[in-house]
Design a protein around this nucleic acid. Structure first.
Length: 456
RNA sequence: GGCGCGAUAGCAAAGCGGUUAUGCACUGGAUUGCAAAUCCACGUAGGCCGGUUCGACUCCGGCUCGCGCCUCCA
């Protein structure tokens, strides 16, 4: 089977062929760290987490780079508001981001370059662009990229320069030679964080950071570049312009963009203010439920977030953990069967997680029907294939009883009371106990090995 | 205005030119003291109008509606 991946640049699925056989270089635009991550960030992180996991599962040696933008206007503004140094702010939110991603089961990237640690690379890249005539320093100390000098501008986003120019929303800046030019280096205002450069003290523009860091970590040309849907233009378009002009080499083979997370049909975003942070959701729902929800639709399609969708995600997971509950799980490994073939075919088709999950549901049904060694083998397979998605790794008991807190002892006492009542054939008393527990969201399950309970 | 994406059963969400997606919800049955879980059974869904085809949800054209980008944004 071949792996095919949708490439934003060509707008079609292509057979994935890495530059170096067996190896994949992947760069994903990460966070600007001035606030907590929201669900939209989670979507991108989880999408590319699964992509990296699957590529590795398929035997590729993956070098996954996800940058951190730790200097930027919003960071400076927020730090000033808080009355703290910008790097104190960014350190804190980098820490919080790591906590959020860890709780969502997201594996750490192989490298997490920070913009402020690559100022030299950025300055060198800008110098190259000036030398080659693609950029110019302005009188105010800024350096701009001359968009019209780059022939391929617009090839990723499908924008046409003259159409952009016709748009009335481009802010005109007296220092720019063309309104469409974008900033590579921003001169520092008084009291702003700054670094030395040939054009005076200042800080890098956002777009050039990624060109410099990706070059540093992965070279002039690499396999996959990913990011959120709103980065396609202008961010990624500008990266192409910078990198290809400076390096004289094709920049990225496969561009991948995750779909948006919406709330009530509108994109979740900081600017609209309609965002839910990861941690406020994790306050109410287990992390796996959130992860599973985001994998329940294909990574490129838009997904509408709601409490309802989280609840359904939880119910869906219950089916898996019910299949695993009380079952002897065999070796955690794949089994050569139809489930495996279909799971891999789905993932090979542009990482079609909803289709892969559908196969896992059928596998769960097979586990429910099977017995003995066959059941154990299938359960091991479910655990194994689940791990490729970073799901289904909890103990069923932990999944079902999560959120019960310190009620466990009391629940056990109540269960014993009910067992005594049942033994005495006092079913009314037994049912009363169950109703009491049910009122607290505790559902009892009588099985051959005694009574267990789940917290709903 | 420019460019692009989407419209699938009650809900969510996939594949596919002709054969059951999948899950949740619903209904009936088996099982259970009663439940829970599980199993079995149960849904002719594919925005609208044309076209291609022996046959289209699936390809082509038009329309309508929704969304995204065109400004910082994952």
């Amino acid at each position: 089977m071949t792996l095919s991946v949708y490439n934003t640049l060509t707008r079609q699925k292509e057979v994935f062929t890495p530059l170096v056989p067996g190896k994949v270089g992947m760069y994903v635009c990460g966070m600007t760290v001035y606030d907590y991550c929201h669900l939209g960030h989670a979507r991108v992180m989880i999408a590319f987490d699964v992509i990296a996991r699957y590529l590795r599962h398929r035997g590729f040696e993956v070098n996954y780079v996800r940058n951190i933008t730790d200097i930027d206007d919003k960071i400076i503004t927020r730090a000033n508001e808080n009355g703290e140094a910008f790097n104190v702010l960014t350190e804190r939110f980098i820490d919080e981001m790591h906590k959020d991603s860890a709780s969502l089961g997201i594996e750490m990237p192989d490298a997490e370059p920070r913009a402020t640690a690559h100022i030299d690379d950025i300055v060198a890249l800008i110098e190259t662009l000036i030398d080659k005539g693609f950029a110019y320093p302005a009188a105010n100390g800024d350096v701009y990229y001359s968009v019209r000098k780059f022939d391929g501008y617009g090839k990723l986003s499908g924008k046409v320069l003259d159409e952009l120019e016709a748009g009335a929303r481009i802010g005109v800046d007296e220092h720019k030679q063309d309104p469409l030019d974008f900033v590579l280096w921003k001169s520092a205002k008084p009291d702003e964080p700054h670094w030395e450069s040939p054009w005076g003290i200042g800080r890098p523009g956002w777009h050039v950071e990624c060109s410099a860091m990706s070059k540093c970590c992965l070279g002039n040309t690499f396999d996959i570049h990913g990011g959120g849907p709103d980065l396609k233009f202008p961010h990624h378009e500008n990266e192409i312009a910078q990198s290809e002009a400076a390096n004289g080499a094709h920049y990225v083979n496969t561009w991948m963009h995750a779909g948006a997370v919406r709330v009530d049909g509108e994109k979740m975003s900081k600017s609209l203010g309609n965002f839910f942070t990861i941690r406020e959701i994790l306050d109410k729902y287990p992390a796996e439920v959130v992860r599973f929800l985001l994998l329940s639709s294909q990574y490129r399609s838009a997904i509408n977030y709601s409490e309802e969708s989280l609840k359904e995600s939880h119910t869906r997971l219950e089916r898996f953990y019910n299949a695993l509950d009380g079952v002897e799980v065999g070796a955690i490994e794949d089994v050569e069967n139809d489930f495996s073939a279909r799971f891999h075919a789905a993932m090979d088709d542009d990482f079609n997680t909803p289709e892969a999950i559908a196969v896992l549901f059928e596998l769960a049904r097979a586990i429910n029907k099977a017995e003995g060694a066959e059941q154990a083998a299938l359960a091991g397979q479910l655990r194994y294939l689940g791990s490729v998605l970073g799901c289904l790794q909890s103990e069923p008991k932990d999944f079902f009883q999560a959120g019960a807190g310190d009620e466990a002892d009391w629940i056990e006492t109540m269960i014993q009371q009910r067992l005594d009542a049942k033994k005495a054939k006092d079913f009314a008393a037994a049912d009363a106990v169950r109703d009491t527990l049910a009122a607290k969201g505790i559902v009892l399950k009588d099985g051959p090995e005694g009574t267990t309970w789940i917290k709903q």
